[in-house]
């Protein structure tokens, strides 16, 4: 059992939300128009068609059209535009 699974078990036992315990990103989607990503690790790539955002383990890829970054804060990103897919890699 990996360290990660231990932590997951522990968080379930203590009823602590997973994103706090495991440092996971919290993603809020507004239909296909807006995506708020909290707890990110910076932008890896940004073009109007693809946005790659670093997260704790791996990266998050958002594809769509006319994507813009509405705002960037040290731990929050808001992506706006026609979102098509969200993929974890």
């Amino acid at each position: 059992m990996t360290w990660r699974e231990w932590k997951k078990k522990l968080s379930e036992l203590l009823e602590i939300p997973n994103d706090v315990m495991l440092n996971l990103p919290r993603i809020v989607l507004m239909g296909n128009l807006q995506a708020f990503i909290e707890n990110h690790r910076g932008i890896l790539e940004y073009t109007p068609r693809i946005v790659r955002i670093g997260i704790e383990e791996g990266e998050l890829e958002i594809t769509g059209e006319n994507l813009i970054l509405r705002n960037i804060l040290p731990d929050e990103i808001c992506v706006e535009g026609m979102i098509k897919t969200i993929t974890f890699k």
Partner: peptide, 13 residues
């Protein structure tokens, strides 16, 4: 810039 706490918005490419 974001890591340093500089607030950026309306980022387009």
């Amino acid at each position: 810039a974001a890591a340093r706490g500089i607030f950026l918005w309306d980022i387009a490419r």
